[in-house]
Amino acid sequence: MFSEGKRSASQVSAGIINPVVLKKFTTFWKAQEQIDFLKNSLQEIEEYTGRNYLIDAPIHRIFHDENEQKLWLKKSENDELISFLDKKFDHLKGVKNDFLSGKVNQSARLDVNGFFAGLFYFLENKGFLVKEKFVYSELDTKNAVYKNFHFQNMLFCEGMGVVNNPFFSDIPVNPNKGHHIKVKLSHSIPENITIKKKHFLFPLSEELYFYGGTYDREQLDAQIDHSAVEQLRRGLSEIYPAELEIVDANIGFRPTVKDRRPILGRHSEYCNLYVFNGLGARGILNGCYFAKSLYDFIEEDVPLPAEVSLDRFK
Rank of each mutant, 00 (worst) to 15 (best):
L22M: 05
S137W: 05
L71Q: 11
G235Y: 02
P166H: 01
K142N: 11
N113G: 14
E243R: 11
N97R: 06
A144K: 13
P175L: 00
N52K: 08
Y121A: 15
S3G: 11
I251D: 00
W29E: 11
G118E: 00
K39Q: 15
V163F: 12
Q152R: 13
L204S: 03
I251S: 00
V257K: 02
E46A: 03
D79L: 14
Y270W: 15
L204H: 01
E230T: 14
F25C: 00
G213A: 15
I62N: 01
T141I: 09
K258N: 11
N125H: 14
I62F: 04
G15L: 07
N164Y: 02
P255Q: 08
A281I: 13
I181L: 02
K70G: 07
I62T: 09
Y211I: 05
F115A: 06
W29Q: 09
Y48L: 15
L285C: 01
S76I: 10
C157G: 11
T214I: 04
L81Q: 02
E158K: 13
M160C: 11
G212L: 05
I45H: 02
G280C: 08
I298G: 01
K147D: 05
I55H: 09
Y295W: 13
L273T: 10
G278W: 00
K258L: 10
I239W: 05
L232P: 08
F297S: 01
D36A: 08
I246M: 03
F134V: 10
V112P: 08
D170N: 15
I171A: 00
I239P: 08
L71H: 13
K24G: 09
E218I: 06
E132R: 10
L279H: 02
V275R: 01
S10Y: 08
F63W: 09
A14M: 06
L304P: 09
L273V: 10
